[in-house]
């Protein structure tokens, strides 16, 4: 079994390239723009696209993504709407791996089994649940595995070796290494915690490792590529959405920003 995520990381390895994983919140400021952004990110070199499910109480997020979720929730939006957007970009021929990044409750209310079935049909490749640690993930993991969907697990610098092992045993697709203790958000200082964490994770897994939280510049991405397979950029892209006045401007500003990020 190899879904789009595995294939993509194999390809990156073969090409000796680092992966770029952009994050946006679905529905910010509307679903039409989200569709355009996914197609844009796929075209400008995203290895995997992380699509955030907006939630009313995003405890793991800093102010930038909190504000993005608030903008998204000004219009009625739910998990079904988000799956439909992904269906549209698949119909448009986009084959970039797409994973959802969600808090647990919206998925729980949608129905875990129903989510796994519909996500597979539509062409979602995996899901990451911010507030679902391995101890609580057993049932959902089983349902996702039946459908060849990846459950991407988070590992943190505070995680003990025992926990890292547990996380790696439950993870599929890739492991998401949180660069530092804290909420999401762009920070200027680069952290050596991330590199240490990635090295610790290698003891427990052969899966690719992506580093996220606080990465916002081309320089930081290059640093991450020295020791990990991919870098996740979230708040910095979301900030481009926030400073734009309309959908056209959003797409242009994000296009420009991503090109600058990936300049060699």
């Amino acid at each position: 079994m190899a879904n789009r995520i595995d294939e993509k990381f194999n390809q990156l390895k073969f090409d000796r390239r680092g992966g770029f994983i952009p994050f946006i919140v679905a529905g910010d400021p509307n679903l039409e723009t989200t569709k355009d952004l996914i197609l844009l990110l796929a075209e400008t070199g995203a290895s995997v696209i992380e699509l955030g499910v907006p939630f009313s109480d995003p405890v793991a997020d800093g102010v930038t993504i909190q504000a993005s979720a608030e903008r998204a929730l000004r219009n009625p939006i739910n998990v079904k709407d988000i799956l439909e957007v992904v269906a549209k970009v698949r119909q448009a021929g986009c084959e970039t791996p797409i994973i959802l990044f969600s808090y647990y409750n919206p998925i729980l209310q949608f129905g875990l089994r129903k989510f796994a079935a519909e996500a597979e049909n539509i062409g979602i490749d995996g899901i990451l649940i911010t507030d679902l640690v391995p101890e609580e993930a057993k049932e959902f993991r089983r349902l996702l595995t039946e459908r060849d969907l990846a459950l991407i697990m988070l590992a943190a610098p505070t995680s003990s070796d025992e926990r890292l092992q547990k996380i790696c045993e439950k993870a599929s697709g890739f492991v998401y290494a949180v660069s530092r203790a804290g909420v999401t958000g762009a920070r200027i200082d680069s952290s050596s915690d991330a590199e240490t964490l990635v090295k610790r994770l290698r003891k427990f897994t052969d899966l690719p490792i992506a580093v996220g939280f606080g990465i916002s510049s081309a320089q930081q991405i290059k640093e991450v590529w020295q020791y990990a397979e991919a870098a996740v950029i979230g708040s910095a892209i979301v900030a481009e959405i926030a400073r734009s006045n309309n959908s056209l401007e959003i797409v242009e500003n994000v296009r420009h920003f991503v090109k600058e990020l990936l300049v060699q």
């Binding site: 943190a156 003990s160 949180v178």
Partner: peptide, 22 residues
Amino acid sequence: ELGYWGEFGGRFVPETLMSPIE
């Protein structure tokens, strides 16, 4: 031991908090 009374309770937090909670 996982903090459940019947089906209620548990620990649904970001991984960063799990070690401090343990």
